[in-house]
Amino acid sequence: MAEWVAELQMRVGRGQGGRLAREALIYLVLTAFLLVAVLPFLGIVLTALKSPTDMAAGPFALPQEWQWRNFQAAWEGARFASYFRSSVIVVVPTVVISILLSTMSGYAFGMLRCPGENVLLLTILLGLTVPFEAIVIPLWKLMGTLGLRNTYWALILPQVALSFSFGTFWMRAHFKTMPRDLVDAAVVDGASQWGVLWRILFPLSRPALLSLTVLIFMWTWNEFFLVLVMVTGDMRTLPVGLAMLRGRYASDVSVLSAAAIIVALPVILVYFAFQRSFVRGMTSGALKG
């Protein structure tokens, strides 16, 4: 297939104006793929704004008047306000704790030396490949034993543990690239390693930390399996709330759509605001991993 395209490109590319025709072709195909990626989400946004009358007019009919009551129905009637609160309560500590712990261990692996560090590091990196399904059942049992089932800790602690794996790997790679002279100079001046880490290196690591923050935020916000298993009722976070709503409101597509947007919007906003950090984290993170 790729060869066929190259052939086509060559043919189109011959002669005067060939470059222009080629660029037009590229833009056309790219735009088509872009639309396929984006339109389904825009479709659900439109659906969320429709009244029952608009819904009856078919999927391509535009809403006659923007209806916010579907969002209200999801927020109040379907208790998405509670789920939203749970999501925030889980995500904020998970991100903060993961960042702090990963920075410390990343610094240790990147800048310090200790016996057995290779084994330790490989053990931590194991968490990058182990699927969550492989730990969920004993984890559920463990949380029962600890009396933490149906508490936010049952969601925060495992998320921190899994994020620590990627975070250590990510921050270690980052600290490896930092100029050593900085540390050397500070140590000569009598600063402790602890002080060097938090007062000098941490503020200088903003890009790496930002990527890590947005990724951990997204993973925790979107987590489904763990939440489904560990908590019930209003302790649920948004994705599980949405899946449960799909069971109850299966017929009311506009409310379901509004609810889906409530779940997706925070991540999308963060994604738009920090898209470079996101894409860098997800592609180079995957590459290095």
Binding site: L34, P239, V240, A243
Partner: peptide
């Protein structure tokens, strides 16, 4: 193009 990657699978 990257948008579908950031959406929750449930969404």
């Amino acid at each position: 193009l990257f948008l579908p990657q950031v959406l929750s699978p449930v969404v």
